[in-house]
Design a protein around this nucleic acid. Structure first.
Lengths: 242, 242
DNA sequence: CTTATCCGGTTGTCTATACAACATAATTCT
DNA sequence: AGAATTATGTTGTATAGACAACCGGATAAG
């Protein structure tokens, strides 16, 4: 059953990991069942124990397996949403949740960072930032009002993109900044007049409000965004770990 | 500078990890700076490279470091909230955010699981569940209305706890179920009459609504909770990774 | 029968070594 | 000078082996 190839460019531990993942997915290993011990897998795959281990530990982090020292490794029970805090774009969501995405650009300019923006982006108050205000539609209905701020110095040619098609992240990546992580503060607020009008809802209606800071590989803040989401058309799922 | 002790029960890689963490925290290593290469740390700490590596990789997962193959390991820029999706109890939050916590128990009974509850807990509709309804106060002001459901079979003596003092998780742990992960769906809704009255707010005011499923080590659902949080007094922060 | 001890199986930690892959800088060749 | 090659430093992957820590059951002692 050892089907690992030595020279296809894929690391052995990754092949082990994916093989195990498949066996769990297709039911060869059932939830609650014990995985063969590391030694057995070592023999089966013909790799060293540390290599098997590295594959297993990956799945452990994903919550697909759990281990008990001195006892064994077990396949976890599957539950509804697993791993739902991945960073995705609006268009990604549209594809996976199967709705038609449209973006309308309301504003696209260079302005000066006010306090909240500057603090979140870790720049000085008054430094120039791109300010991109968009309205996002799912299946033609307005869902989210988006206010994004990106430090000017990161990507000076940002003004020339068409943000109905290209997302700010793609623009950032073209400037050499890989988006890695985002921190969001979430609350429920009431719609004010302007926002209500744009989102085609009533004043006082509940909105899911997010303040999001996006950072790159090295932890540098790349983007700060304020998102006003219609409460009746938007929900989000997160996973917490102890 | 090698200050690792071989026999204090703490794993060497953990000691390496914490030493590095301290150096980052106290500024010995500055953000953006390059960490000494693995070989150097190997020499300094007097442990093998794999051991140093294990410590470094932990910090990598936390986002405190980042690496570039062929180049080196670097200290990440610090940004506002890091690692804010840890699972904490109400009392934990009270301690860390420095408010006075109080819990009022409105209901504590055994009932039969209705559809949503059964599906979330992966049990059959009509199976007995504990239903614990509580109102939570911060500094004397109501913040959250909590509706928790726990499968009866998991912990039959759950009824006898005093839920103003003991949290359901602690009760679960005494029954041998360690809480490991939670998945939350979050939306913004308007307060209905009953909820508004309990939270001392107005009908229609925005609430942050959460549906939370808590699972144990093996992925078994342990608890399902509906949480109605006052929008003006509650916010939450999550981290997403790509 | 109960308790204590031992033993075997399993995961956790650690070592020492080797080579591959990658990025940058230095060198050499054209 | 410019381009190709080489050298060097760094992280990534992989091996083989060793002992520690832990758990559960079997065995032995009381």
């Amino acid at each position: 059953m050892a089907v690992l190839s030595k020279d296809n460019g894929v690391a052995l531990y990754a092949q082990v990991r994916e093989t195990l993942r498949n066996r769990i997915a297709n039911g060869s290993y059932q939830p609650g069942e014990r995985l063969p011990p590391e030694e057995a897998l070592t023999a089966e795959f013909g790799v060293s124990r540390m290599t098997v281990r590295q594959g297993i530990l990956d799945l452990l982090d994903e919550g697909l397996l759990y281990r008990k020292r001195g006892i064994g490794t077990f396949i976890a029970q599957r539950h509804v949403h697993r791993d739902h805090n991945r960073l995705t774009t609006f268009f990604d969501s549209a594809a996976s949740e199967n709705f038609e995405a449209k973006i309308e650009v309301l504003k696209q300019e260079v302005s000066l960072a006010r306090h909240l923006v500057a603090r979140s982006l870790n720049i000085l108050e008054g430094e120039p930032v791109f300010h991109i205000k968009t309205l996002r539609f799912a299946d033609g209905l307005p869902i989210t009002l988006h206010d994004e701020f990106i430090p000017y110095k990161l990507c000076p040619d940002m003004l020339h993109y068409d943000f109905t098609q290209v997302l700010s992240w793609e623009a950032l990546e073209r400037c050499g900044f890989r988006v890695k992580q985002a921190v969001q503060k979430i609350e429920a607020i009431a719609a004010d007049e302007k926002t209500a009008k744009l989102l085609e809802t009533e004043i006082g209606d509940p909105l899911l409000y997010k303040e999001r800071t996006v950072v790159g590989e090295d932890g540098t803040p790349l983007e700060f965004a304020l998102c006003y989401n219609r409460g009746d058309r938007y929900s989000l799922t997160t996973t917490l770990t102890r």
